[in-house]
Design a protein around this nucleic acid. Structure first.
Lengths: 183, 183
DNA sequence: CCCGAATGAGACAATCATGTCTCGCCACAG
DNA sequence: CTGTGGCGAGACATGATTGTCTCATTCGGG
């Protein structure tokens, strides 16, 4: 009988990533619960978005841990990271575009930690000669976020097959569109 | 004394791309006009977004024309396209995330035309051996949109220098992050 | 079996954005 | 100089969303 808070959050993320202006009532309906119950668990819309933000940060951090970025070649680490992040891609796509989160007085410090870890990985790849040094780690980090979001939308809308999600993102991010003659 | 409709649209685009939920009053204020005047020119919020959509489509199409994609190597055409699109990047970033535009009954057919032209360019590049064939033209098109939007945000937030906008996008999209030994 | 906790449905007021209106002002053309 | 058209400010009603509350119901543990 008790509501599964985690499940509600995941349903809300799926809905909001498609329709960011969805009503609290729509969120509740999509989760199969009443609006009153939704309010019992999340004080209001802000609290719901905040909870989604924290869930997204947790999942991203878990993906970073699971990817073991410091082991082996940086390229392989990036592949593992994208693979680990795929289930949370829709949620992250929503959070990245929810710029309301980034205009308030105090931004959740979790994003800073995530940015630092991802940037550090790109920097390590550059120092080890795997990655180009003319693209800044900050930009590569942003581009990774952007491509994950774009990929999530493209899959949701059927423009890209779900099974190709990881491959398309990683291959584009690592190798680009240009064909290399020796390959 | 007469309001410059085009200028209002550009100001609105700049504001809405940062804060998608901005009020009609905020849009009016940011354009330096009264809310009543804004309503005289755009019947309502929907009409405003619709006008922004058509402006974005016009600018994108103008950029496609100016880029002369069918001339010379596909890679050079892509560089010209990104250069031409830069001024409209913020507007496009807003429109792409305004998924309200794509859930209604009839989606503006302009997007289909744009997608077709961009996809065709990537396909030509593949057929001429310039681009990889394991990344679909549809995905490359989506990725281009995504990177343009990501780049626009990164510049707005100061995470990437404005002068690097074109270079970062084109180099990542074409060459990827991996360092090629022979280069 | 019984009781309590949690839920769903709905009523309710408050808030906010919207759309429309009026009124006074000002610039510019005639 | 005068009239007219466009504008800004603001009032107003409306509709939608939100947040809170009550009440009946149901599930599950003791």
């Amino acid at each position: 009988m008790t509501v599964d808070r985690e499940q509600v959050l995941r349903t809300a993320a799926a809905l909001l990533s498609r329709k960011a202006t969805a009503t609290m009532d729509e969120v509740a309906k999509s989760a199969g619960i009443g609006r009153a119950t939704l309010h019992r668990h999340f004080a209001g819309r802000d609290a719901l978005v905040k909870a989604l933000e924290e869930l997204g940060i947790r999942e991203f951090e878990a993906a970073l841990d699971a990817a073991r970025l410091d082991e082996g070649p940086a390229e392989d680490g990036l592949r593992r990271l994208v693979a680990e992040i795929e289930p949370a891609a829709g949620l992250l796509a929503f959070l990245v575009t929810e710029n309301q989160l980034f205009e308030g007085a105090h931004v959740n410090e979790g994003w800073g930690r995530l940015d630092a870890r991802v940037s550090a990985h790109f920097r390590r790849g550059q120092q080890q000669g795997e990655f180009r040094i003319d693209l800044t780690p900050a930009w590569l980090t942003e581009a990774l976020y952007g491509l994950i979001g774009t990929g999530a939308w493209a899959v949701q809308d059927g423009r890209v097959a779900a099974k190709d999600f990881q491959y398309m993102i990683v291959e584009l991010l690592l190798g680009g569109a240009r064909r290399n003659v020796e390959q």
